[in-house]
Computed example of a mutant assay.
Amino acid sequence: MEKRINIVSFNVPYPPNYGGIIDVYYKLKALHLMGVRTILHCFEYERPPAPELEALCEKVYYYKRKTGILKNLSLLPYNVCGRKDPQLLENLLKNNYPILFEALHTCYYIDHPALKDRMKIYRESNIEHDYYRHLAKATPEIIRKTFLYIEAWKYKRYEKVLTHADHMLVVSTADTDYLQKQYPEVTVEYMPSFHANDHIRIQPGQSDFILYHGKLSVVENEQAALFLIKNVFNKLKHTCIIAGMDPSKRIIEAAAHYPHIQIEANPSQERMEYLITHAQVQLLITFQDTGLKLKLLNSLFAGRHTIVNSLMLTGTGLDSLCVIADSPEEMIRACNEQMALPMTAELISSREKILNTTYSNQKQAERLYALI
Rank of each mutant, 00 (worst) to 15 (best):
A243V: 07
F301M: 09
L313W: 04
Q282H: 12
V323F: 06
E329R: 14
N266K: 04
Y258K: 14
A254R: 07
A256W: 00
V323C: 14
V281W: 03
L283G: 10
S299G: 14
L283T: 10
F301L: 06
H260S: 04
G303T: 03
I242H: 11
A265D: 03
N234H: 13
E329F: 04
Y258D: 11
C322G: 01
I263T: 05
D326A: 00
I263K: 07
R250C: 11
H305E: 03
S310W: 00
N298I: 00
G291L: 04
L313V: 09
I276Y: 02
L275N: 13
T286C: 09
T314G: 09
L294F: 02
H257P: 00
H260C: 04
H278N: 14
T286W: 02
K235N: 13
F287T: 00
R250H: 10
I263G: 08
L275Q: 12
I276A: 08
I261Q: 13
L297W: 02
A279N: 05
G244D: 10
A243M: 07
K235D: 09
P267V: 00
T314I: 08
I263A: 05
L294H: 08
I252Y: 01
C240Y: 02
A243Q: 07
T316S: 15
I251Y: 09
S299R: 07
K235H: 12
A265E: 09
N266H: 08
N266V: 00
H257T: 07
L318A: 10
L321V: 05
P328T: 06
E270N: 08
C322P: 00
I242E: 08
M245H: 15
K237V: 08
R250A: 15
I242P: 14
Q280L: 05
Y258H: 15
L311H: 08
T314E: 12
L311C: 04
E253W: 02
R250S: 15
A279W: 01
H238A: 15
L236K: 11
G303S: 07
E264Y: 08
S310F: 00
S299Q: 05
H238Y: 14
C322L: 00
L236C: 14
V323T: 15
D246I: 03
K293W: 00
M245C: 10
Q282T: 13
D326R: 01
H257R: 11
I324T: 15
A325Y: 03
S268C: 06
D326Y: 00
G244E: 07
G291D: 06
H278C: 05
E329T: 07
Q269K: 13
A255Q: 04
C240I: 09
T286Y: 02
L275F: 12
I261G: 15
L283V: 06
R304P: 03
S310P: 03
R250V: 02
F301C: 10
Q280V: 05
D289T: 05
C240V: 08
A255S: 13
N309T: 01
V323W: 06
Q282R: 15
L284E: 00
L283Y: 06
S299D: 02
E273R: 13
L275H: 11
F287G: 01
P259F: 01
I285T: 03
H305C: 06
L318M: 11
A325L: 07
A302I: 01
N234V: 06
G317T: 09
E270F: 02
I252Q: 05
Q262P: 02
C240W: 00
L311S: 10
G317Q: 13
K249C: 04
A256M: 07
P247H: 01
E273G: 13
G244M: 09
T239P: 10
L313S: 08
H278I: 03
R250N: 14
